[in-house]
């Protein structure tokens, strides 16, 4: 596992909102199942003292940190407050910050990530489903019933497409070490490079499925920087130029970041690229048997 395990205490920022409350319930249901600590504290300014699914809510992150051993945070606050939440958590000393929130202006994200970097915190997202290490910990909104424990790491810019891939892997008997949704925005904290570096240090992870999409060149950058065996998939082969395909970051602009050139660059570096999601499990099996 990377970023956290059963022992990681999680703080939820935006604990009393609809999303926060719903997912505290699901995260702690998962924690009970795997014997983990799960969500130990919530934060919503002005709502200190309330309880959400038995979890105490605090007014500030520092107050929560004073009462609990917290290693990670998950953010569900609205877009206008999310950058502030990231900075508050980094400032309080939380090392892993998962930001689920979508539609944060890019300039806010750049500032918050720069601030977090100064404090030594890693930001996952924004605009992401979070991460899940089967049998260990769930930080975010991924549907845990699709996952199974194993040795394949998954990194993805997408949410539901990740679930689709995980579902295919599980059905094919291929378990996962950690599945990380890094987010669909143009600027995100942990990129393919960062997560792959963590997977390299993780003895459980033997191979990685990399799920990218149009926009930027971070997939190629990541694949070039690791020795781990990789199977890649790139969504958006039929995406027209200059159109944002649902994700703020999924855009072919200035003739760059299109799927075909990404795929060509990955293949040139020896990375097998699946043309359909359903081909991924068989290609992962090939990596392992070497045939």
């Amino acid at each position: 596992m990377i970023y956290g395990d059963q022992k990681t205490g999680i703080l939820v920022q935006g604990a009393t909102g609809k999303q926060g409350e719903f997912h505290i319930g699901l995260m702690n249901e998962y924690a009970r199942k795997v014997g983990g600590r799960g969500v130990v504290a919530g934060v919503t300014p002005g709502k200190g003292g309330q309880q959400v699914h038995g979890v105490t809510v605090y007014n500030t992150v520092k107050e929560a940190m004073h009462e609990h051993d917290i290693g990670a945070a998950v953010i569900f606050v609205p877009a206008g407050a999310a950058a502030d939440a990231i900075m508050e958590e980094a400032d309080a000393g939380i090392g892993t910050i998962v930001c689920i929130t979508e539609h944060i202006p890019v300039h806010d994200t750049m500032k918050a990530i720069a601030y977090a970097r100064i404090h030594g915190a890693s930001v996952i997202g924004p605009n992401c489903p979070g991460l899940l290490s089967p049998g260990e910990v769930k930080m975010g909104i991924m549907p845990a019933q699709l996952y199974s424990r194993g040795s394949v790491g998954v990194i993805s810019r997408s949410g539901t497409l990740t679930y689709e891939v995980v579902d295919e892997l599980t059905r094919a008997g291929i378990g996962q070490s950690t599945v990380v949704g890094i987010g669909g925005d143009p600027v995100i904290g942990q990129t393919f490079v960062d997560v792959l570096a963590r997977f390299e240090e993780d003895p459980q992870t033997k191979a990685v499925v990399l799920i990218g999409e149009v926009g930027g060149n971070l997939e190629e950058e990541g694949a070039n920087a690791t020795d781990l065996p990789i199977v890649a998939y790139i969504a958006g082969k039929s995406a027209p130029p200059d159109k944002r395909m649902g994700h703020a970051g999924a855009i072919v602009e200035g003739g760059e970041g299109d799927a075909r050139s990404k795929i060509a660059r990955l293949q040139k570096n020896g990375v097998p690229v699946a043309s359909r999601v359903s081909e991924i499990p068989a290609m992962v099996k090939e990596l392992f048997c070497g045939c």
Partner: peptide
């Protein structure tokens, strides 16, 4: 019609495929 940008995009790609 899909839910999630990645899944919807990969549905488009499959149509092309």
């Amino acid at each position: 019609i899909g839910n999630g940008a990645g899944l919807t995009m990969s549905t488009l790609d499959l149509i092309e495929y």
